[in-house]
């Protein structure tokens, strides 16, 4: 049983005439808290408390398992060398058509703080992920990587991309020197602050 928006409106209409400021409704499926807001009107906090129910064997293949759709889904890993740009079909619903300003250049770069640089063990500077996301070594599939082990870099050199929420974030070396280690494979997920590479600083 699901409460519709209309149901909530009906409840609020009732509450409006009563001297209460809060209604806390708990069912086996959800919890709904309605509160009178300080500036007038109401707020709702909903918590869907029902546990997700994995498709059972009646319809799925795998008895007791969190129904994996057979072998195909598990075999459908990311394409080899998947890199930013290949997910062209992954359009967030309604990106607008060509209607506006700022149309020059690409639109996928978010401005983020540069990777933080911390000294690690052997005098190497660490390049950290500025955001959680997917690590890419090349600007697009099939392109040459930004850097290899041994590449000379300046602080502003772009050494990788981290894709977060469909935006491509450039990762800068942060330190001038030589790329000593690349710690993450292309297309791997990274957490914020994860070490991506180590740079041997120029003397």
């Amino acid at each position: 049983m699901e409460l519709t928006n209309e149901d909530v409106a009906d409840i609020l209409e009732l509450l409006d005439s009563l001297p209460y400021d809060e209604l806390d409704l708990r069912t086996s499926r959800f919890r709904l808290t309605l509160r009178r807001a300080a500036g007038g009107g109401w707020t709702q906090s909903r918590q869907e408390t029902a546990e997700p129910r994995a498709l059972d064997s009646a319809a799925g293949h795998d008895r007791g398992e969190p129904a994996a759709p057979g072998s195909t889904a598990s075999g459908s890993t990311a394409p080899e060398g998947a890199a930013p740009g290949i997910v062209a079909g992954d359009d967030p619903g309604d990106r607008a058509g060509a209607a506006g300003p700022g149309a020059d250049g690409t639109v996928t770069d978010a401005t983020v703080t540069d990777a933080t640089v911390t000294d690690s063990g052997a005098g190497l500077a660490e390049v950290a992920a500025p955001l959680p996301g997917t690590f890419y070594r090349a600007p697009r599939p099939g392109a040459a990587p930004f850097v290899e082990v041994g590449s000379q870099v300046s602080a502003g050199t772009v050494v990788a991309i981290v894709e977060t929420m469909k935006l491509m974030n450039s990762v800068h070396a942060g330190t001038a020197g030589r790329v000593a280690q690349i710690l993450i494979g292309n297309g791997e997920p990274v957490t914020q602050g994860a070490a991506l590479m180590r740079i041997e600083p120029a003397q």
Partner: peptide
């Protein structure tokens, strides 16, 4: 939690 049932589609990355 809202759906009647859930089936696993694959790993997190959309591809």
């Amino acid at each position: 939690r809202l759906a009647d049932k859930v089936i696993r589609l694959g790993p997190g990355p959309a591809s």
